[in-house]
Design a protein around this nucleic acid. Structure first.
Length: 572
DNA sequence: GCCGTTTTCGGCCCGACTGTTTTCAGTCG
């Protein structure tokens, strides 16, 4: 039986939630959450680790006891401890606990005193006035609970939004705030460029807190004010996005930015590092007794802890603090390192613009080369190209290359990998191309074994260059197909093939963990947009961000190289 | 439940805000 990492982390997370509600020791609860975080950050499969006889308890935050539980899940698909917990407490309490304003303890009290087990129970008890009678609760709390239930049912559950969507929603507000206060900076998971964000944390400095908080809470898109204080206020935009503003003193800006950028795990690790040195680390600085050692900038904060500066994208407690201490942090790739796009479409298939128009947009970005990779015939919906139409496109690009001098246009294709692992176009035409991007669009539901075999077989075709959107996932909508990604990466390296980080905001595929594994395998990746429109070329920044989160350096990425070098790399 | 440049036992990050209180618990990040 193949157990996915997510099944393991979901079960352990449920255990943590239920133990939390039960009122168990907080550190024990945290231990489960730490294990969940470790598992979520793995690129490889735990099932396979176990099969290969690797020691699961060597993973950070996973000790012998946790390893035994994981082993039980691997062997039986279940966890007795979780089953027993569910006998004590209905797991529907977890849903209640995750409502805003509700935590483990309130959930427990409501369960014990009013026998509330579901969100419906909660709603009824709140409406009947039972909750406000309880000690520690009151009228306002009851009102907040009812509002959160309404919000919850409106959204159909609790959701995070894509980073691209968050960017769209927050940009106008940032512009507005910049006119009202100083040093306006977005912190939180947005600054770390996580693929999705739950809310937006903004940091700023200003001389007049009352005025600043008033300006913030009176922004025209604000739906309601959740809290308003001297240093912290929270609002909800009409779109449903929560935004927190923290006002800090200029001299503690670095300390505050560091703290509010997180991640939580990174902050905790930093505080521990400080503690070991006899310092106290908080959002106001690094302190030795009363003496402030650092606070103005993040760099100074890190240095006070004997660490080199750590880029926000790395702050996930995935080894960055050790690497910083040993001065072994990667020099992360930047947007400026990208020399061209290797996966784009035109109106030959389902793109919105002609090759000429797309190329012009690429020139505006300063690209040195630009690959046109329209769909192949299998993708009929997009009017995919057959050999004949691709031949015409090749002629058109040859003519363009004769005419246009400052950018090299690469003749390419996004060719479908058919179910049997062959490619959708003949080698006679593929050999005419500069670059062959290959992807799976159909037969997504093959078994892991078959899907892996299919892709590996496709890689045996000597013209196969890059596997596009390798897992096929769509964030928040569709799981990736079942595939042995580690095996594919290792074989890609051996065969001289590459994988893509697809920068399209819905995809971000490969993700950060996969990218990091690729680096560790020594496999270079491309970062491309899959642009279907001129404006999509800008999405490259999201791909670069995920690459940075995956610890990638300039040299780890195919399209940071000159066309001359790239051509060599593509030649098998 | 994890973990060790002080430890195999005894620690485990820290502060702001709200609401319900009248000194503080719960939640959040």
């Amino acid at each position: 039986m193949v157990i996915h990492n997510k099944e393991i982390s979901d079960k352990l997370n449920e255990v943590a939630d239920l133990l939390d509600i039960k009122g168990e020791n907080q550190f024990r609860v945290r231990a489960y959450r730490n294990a969940v975080r470790t598992i979520s950050g793995l690129s490889g499969s735990i099932t396979e680790m176990a099969e290969e006889g690797k020691d699961i308890s060597s993973l950070p935050g996973i000790g012998s006891s946790m390893a035994e539980k994981i082993d039980e899940i691997l062997k039986t698909g279940e966890l007795k401890q979780l089953k027993n917990l569910k006998k004590e407490l209905p797991d529907s309490l977890i849903e209640i606990m995750k409502l805003e304003q509700m935590g483990p303890q309130r959930t427990k009290i409501l369960h014990d005193k009013l026998n509330i087990n579901t969100i419906d129970d909660l709603k009824k008890a709140a409406e009947d006035g039972e909750i406000e009678e309880l000690e520690g609760f009151g009228r306002k709390t009851t009102k907040n609970i009812l509002r959160e239930i309404e919000e919850y049912s409106k959204k159909g559950g609790l959701q995070r939004i894509k980073i691209s969507e968050a960017e769209k929603q927050i940009k106008p507000m940032i512009e507005y705030l910049k006119g009202k206060m100083d040093n306006v900076t977005i912190a939180g998971s947005y600054r770390r460029q996580k693929e999705t964000v739950g809310d937006i944390d903004i940091l700023a400095t200003g001389k007049n807190p009352d005025k600043a908080m008033k300006d913030f809470t009176e922004y025209e898109e604000v739906d309601r004010v959740l809290s308003k204080g001297e240093t912290k206020s929270s609002i909800k935009l009409r779109t449903g996005l929560q935004v927190d503003l923290r006002l800090v003193k200029k001299r503690s800006f670095g300390a505050a930015l560091l703290y509010f950028t997180g991640s939580k795990a990174h902050s905790i690790a930093l505080r521990k590092t400080g503690q070991n040195k006899g310092y106290k680390v908080n959002e106001y600085g690094v302190f030795k007794g009363k003496k402030r050692l650092a606070s103005k900038t993040e760099k100074a904060m890190y240095e006070a802890l004997d660490l080199t500066y750590i880029e926000p994208e790395l702050r996930e407690s995935r080894g960055e603090i050790e690497a910083s201490r040993n001065n072994e942090l990667p020099a992360l790739i930047t947007l400026e390192d990208i020399k061209g796009d290797l996966h784009t479409h035109t109106n030959f298939t389902d793109g919105n613009y002609s090759p000429e128009e797309m190329i012009e947009a690429a020139q505006e970005r300063g690209y040195k080369y630009y690959a046109i990779t329209d769909h192949s015939k299998k993708v009929a919906m997009a009017r995919g190209l057959d050999e004949k139409r691709l031949g015409k496109q090749i002629e058109r690009i040859d003519a363009l290359n004769d005419k246009i001098k400052n950018i090299k246009i690469l003749k390419g294709i996004e060719v479908d990998i058919l179910e049997d692992g062959t490619l959708d176009l003949s080698n006679d035409i593929l050999k005419e191309l500069d670059i062959v991007v290959c992807s799976v669009h159909y037969n997504r539901n093959l078994s892991k074994k078959k899907q892996t075999k299919r892709i590996l077989k496709a890689m045996d075709n000597p013209y196969f260059n890059i596997l596009a959107h390798p897992t096929g996932r769509l964030i928040g909508e569709r799981r990736g197909y079942d595939v042995d990604m580690e095996k594919i990466m290792k074989e890609a390296k051996d065969k001289g093939c590459f994988l893509e980080i697809n920068s399209f905001p819905d995809r971000l595929d490969l993700n950060d963990a996969n990218a990091r594994f690729a680096k560790e395998t020594g496999l270079k990746l491309s970062i491309s947009t899959d642009a279907h429109s001129k404006g999509h070329l800008e999405y490259i920044k999201y791909g670069v961000a995920q690459a940075r989160r995956g610890w990638l350096e300039k040299d780890d990425v195919l399209n940071t190289h000159s066309w001359k070098e790239l051509k060599k790399l593509l030649t098998r």
